[in-house]
Computed example of a mutant assay.
Amino acid sequence: MSKRFKQLTKNADKNFNQMLIGVLIVAIGIFLWADKNYFFWPPQLRPLMNSEWSDIIFIILGICLLWAALTGNHSRKFQSILLIVASAAVAMLLVEQLWHVLFAHKIEMIMAVILDAGLLVMLIRCAYKN
């Protein structure tokens, strides 16, 4: 194996939680991009919440987290900013989904709320360990 590949696998092992978070955030972004009617409450915010821009932000954010983890998080400041922005994005997603559960009585979204809460805890833990 090449030296570069060994370093990438070493970084991936060292930053496994951050890589997992990055993959999950990319998956969330792709899912939201595919489903343009996911959010429906409140009706006034429906176009904003289902905007392609928020989906693109999730995808780019996840890719940046993956890239930073694979390259070894050389810049702690950049890693901190990425983790803070990702935490804010996931927290906002969690609140939006919680609104649907509480106010629109869309109880099926409770699993998404639980999984987003778990992802948020992982993000906070990574930021704390940083």
Rank of each mutant, 00 (worst) to 15 (best):
L32E: 11
A34L: 14
A34N: 12
K36D: 14
K36E: 12
N37D: 15
Y38I: 08
F40N: 12
W41R: 03
W41Q: 01
P43M: 12
L45A: 10
P47S: 08
L48P: 00
N50C: 04
N50G: 05
E52F: 03
W53V: 14
W53K: 09
S54A: 09
S54N: 14
I56M: 07
I56E: 00
I57R: 04
I57Y: 06
G62D: 06
G62C: 08
I63M: 11
C64E: 07
L65T: 07
L65R: 05
L65E: 04
A68F: 04
A69Y: 01
A69N: 02
A69V: 02
L70P: 03
L70W: 10
T71I: 07
G72K: 02
G72H: 01
N73E: 10
N73F: 01
S75K: 06
S75D: 12
R76S: 08
K77P: 00
F78M: 13
Q79S: 15
S80G: 11
S80W: 10
I81Y: 08
L83V: 09
I84L: 11
I84A: 11
V85M: 07
V85I: 15
A86N: 06
S87M: 08
A88Q: 03
A89M: 13
V90G: 00
A91G: 09
M92C: 04
L93D: 07
V95D: 00
V95P: 00
E96I: 11
E96N: 08
Q97V: 04
W99H: 05
W99D: 11
W99S: 06
H100R: 04
V101Y: 03
V101W: 03
L102Q: 09
L102D: 02
F103H: 07
A104Q: 07
A104M: 06
A104S: 11
H105G: 01
H105I: 11
K106M: 11
K106H: 15
